[in-house]
C-alpha cells in the first residue's frame, strides 16, 4: 500500500513537471505585458500580431508542405523497408540494410545534417540537383530521417501478421498484388497512419537538419522560431506555441478516445457472440 502511494505521488509530480512549462507558455501568451512574470491583463494582441506576421505565415506554409511530402514518402519507403526486413528471405546485403534503416534512430541530428549537407554540396556540383537551401533538399533530408521511425512502427505491427491469410486469399484466386492490397494494407493501416503522423511531426519539429541543408530560400518554422528565441522571450512565439500545443493535443486526445471507443465496441461485439 505504501509503495503504491509513493508511486502515485511520483506520477503526479511527473505530470506537474511535464505540464507546468506548457501551461505557463499558454498562459503568458494572453498576457498584455511583454514581461513574463507580471500578469497585467488579458489580451489577444500577440495573436493578432502573429496573424499579421507574414514571415511566420510563410515559414508555416513551407514547413507544412515539406512535412506532408516527407510523411507520405517516408511512410511508403518505411513500410516497404519493414516488409523487406520481416518477410523477405535473406539476400546479400540484408544485414547492411537493417543497420542502415535503424541508423537515423541513434545518429545525432547534427551529424545527419552535416553529412547530408556535404552530400548535397557534392550532388550540386555533379548533377546540379537538389540545390542546398531549397525545399526539396530539406524534404529529402527529412524523409531519410523519418523512414526509420515508420519502419519501426510498421515492423512492430507486422510481427503479428498471419501469413496464412495471404496464402488463403491466393488459394481463393486473388493475385498476389490484390491479396497484398486487400489484406496486408488494411492490416497495416493503423501503423501506417501513426507512422505518417510521426513523420509529419518529426519534419515539422526539426531544426538542426533543416538549418544545415536549408537556407534563406526555404526557411522552416523551427528555423524562424529558433532565430527569435535566441534573443529571449517573445510573446508572439508564446502565442504560436499555444496554437501548436492546443492543435496537437486536441488531435491526439480525439484520436485516443475514438480509438478507445472503437476498441470497446469491438470487445462488446466479440463478447456478445455465442461461444
Amino acid at each position: 500500500m505504501k509503495s503504491s502511494r509513493f508511486g502515485l505521488a511520483s506520477l503526479i509530480i511527473c505530470y506537474v513537471f511535464l505540464y507546468t512549462p506548457l501551461i505557463s507558455l499558454v498562459m503568458f501568451s494572453f498576457n498584455s505585458s511583454k514581461q513574463v512574470i507580471f500578469w497585467t491583463g488579458f489580451s489577444m494582441k500577440w495573436y493578432k500580431a502573429l496573424f499579421m506576421n507574414s514571415e511566420i505565415l510563410n515559414a508555416t506554409l513551407t514547413s507544412l508542405e515539406i512535412a506532408a511530402i516527407t510523411a507520405t514518402g517516408a511512410t511508403i519507403l518505411g513500410a516497404i523497408s519493414a516488409i523487406i526486413i520481416l518477410k523477405f528471405k535473406k539476400f546479400r546485403g540484408k544485414n547492411l540494410f537493417e543497420v542502415l534503416v535503424s541508423l537515423p534512430l541513434i545518429m545525432p541530428e547534427v551529424i545527419m545534417g552535416l553529412g547530408l549537407l556535404l552530400l548535397f554540396f557534392n550532388l550540386e556540383s555533379w548533377i546540379g540537383w537538389p540545390r542546398i537551401g531549397t525545399k526539396s533538399a530539406i524534404t529529402f533530408a527529412h524523409t531519410t530521417l523519418s523512414i526509420s521511425y515508420v519502419c519501426a512502427i510498421v515492423h512492430a505491427q507486422l510481427v503479428s501478421f498471419d501469413e496464412t491469410l495471404l496464402e488463403a486469399a491466393m488459394d481463393l484466386g486473388a493475385r498476389p498484388i490484390k491479396a497484398f492490397f486487400q489484406i496486408m494494407i488494411p492490416f497495416l493501416t493503423p501503423a501506417l497512419i501513426s507512422g505518417w503522423f510521426l513523420s509529419f511531426v518529426l519534419s515539422m519539429d526539426d531544426l538542426i537538419v533543416a538549418s544545415f541543408v536549408g537556407g534563406p530560400e526555404a526557411t522552416t518554422l523551427p528555423m524562424l522560431i529558433y532565430s527569435s528565441v535566441k534573443f529571449g522571450i517573445t510573446p508572439q512565439i508564446n502565442a504560436l506555441a499555444s496554437l501548436i500545443i492546443l492543435f496537437v493535443m486536441g488531435i491526439l486526445t480525439v484520436g485516443y478516445f475514438l480509438h478507445m471507443r472503437q476498441k470497446r465496441s469491438l470487445e462488446a461485439m466479440t463478447s456478445s457472440l455465442p461461444q
Binding site: 512549462p21 506548457l22 505557463s24 507558455l25 511531426v201 515539422m204 519539429d205 531544426l207 523551427p222 522560431i225 529558433y226 528565441v229 512565439i237 506555441a241 501548436i244 500545443i245 496537437v248 493535443m249 491526439l252
Partner: peptide
C-alpha cells in the same frame, strides 16, 4: 508530440 524547440523554450 508538441514541438521540441518550444518545450525547451518554455
Amino acid at each position: 508530440w508538441t514541438s521540441f524547440l518550444l518545450r525547451v523554450y518554455a
